[in-house]
Design a protein around this nucleic acid. Structure first.
Lengths: 130, 130
DNA sequence: TAACACTGTGTAATAATATAACATATTTAA
DNA sequence: TTAAATATGTTATATTATTACACAGTGTTA
């Protein structure tokens, strides 16, 4: 069981917006969209985004500087993310593959490093774009 | 056998610099360092970086917006990269793990997507920082 | 209750990362 | 030897993200 986070007003507004989109949103496009709700400055957006990432409600697509909601409602996994990204249409999908997750979770390098997180991004062409 | 790329002057200058560092360098720190060699503008740096990434001589650490040389001299693998990143000292190491590479290379999602590239970043604490 | 830590807010300014647009030069290939 | 492709140099600008400061709310804890 995990502590149920209570979101603040700004965090809710921004999470709502991201959850309504099935594709990643960029910080300044979020800013544009939430101006009508009284969020005026980049920092207000980034603060909310950082918090939402931290608690696993959204993930950052590092190669795209964009943020996508985690569809896995029970997801506490801010720490183990896998995405597929179409380089043509930029469609992004989060991948939940048990075997792959296991493999990555159990991965040990030869340097004695202790991992607590990973992010994997696959690139290619989606069905539509092939 | 692969076509041996001939690098231009700017590309060589920037590759040299990155190869001399065992840690990732950021574009504007590269710019600062190569100003004495007559490279004056961000775009000159980014153009060289993009080319070097494309031919696999360097890799971009997406989560850090930084560039590291590929130590694997035979590396044609701009397309399959794995890194370990220490979140305390920011030490970055490229990982070459045959079994892991195989697993990732062979990964198929359930959406019929055709992958041609992936990037995996592990985060944690290195030996020194534990 | 007051003192404190902690987290969040709002605002302005600025830093850091990256690309567009244009004119020109060099290299490669037909 | 012309055309296509790639690279250069420069200026300006777009995009992404943080610093710094003043203050407000919430929950200890003493």
């Amino acid at each position: 069981m995990q502590k149920q986070e209570t979101l603040t007003k700004n965090q809710k507004i921004i999470l709502d917006l991201i959850e309504k989109s099935d594709q990643p949103l960029k910080a300044y496009s979020i800013l544009f969209d939430v101006k009508k709700k009284g969020i005026n400055a980049p920092l207000q957006v980034y603060r909310a985004l950082n918090k939402l990432v931290k608690i696993g409600k959204i993930h950052k697509i590092e190669s795209r500087n964009a943020f996508i909601a985690c569809k896995n409602s029970k997801c506490q996994i801010a720490k183990a993310t896998v995405f597929s990204i179409c380089e043509s249409c930029e469609d992004v999908t989060e991948i939940h593959d048990h075997k792959l997750s296991e493999h990555l979770r159990d991965f040990k390098d030869n340097k004695g490093m202790k991992y607590n997180k990973y992010n994997l991004e696959f690139f290619g062409l989606c069905k539509k774009c092939i």
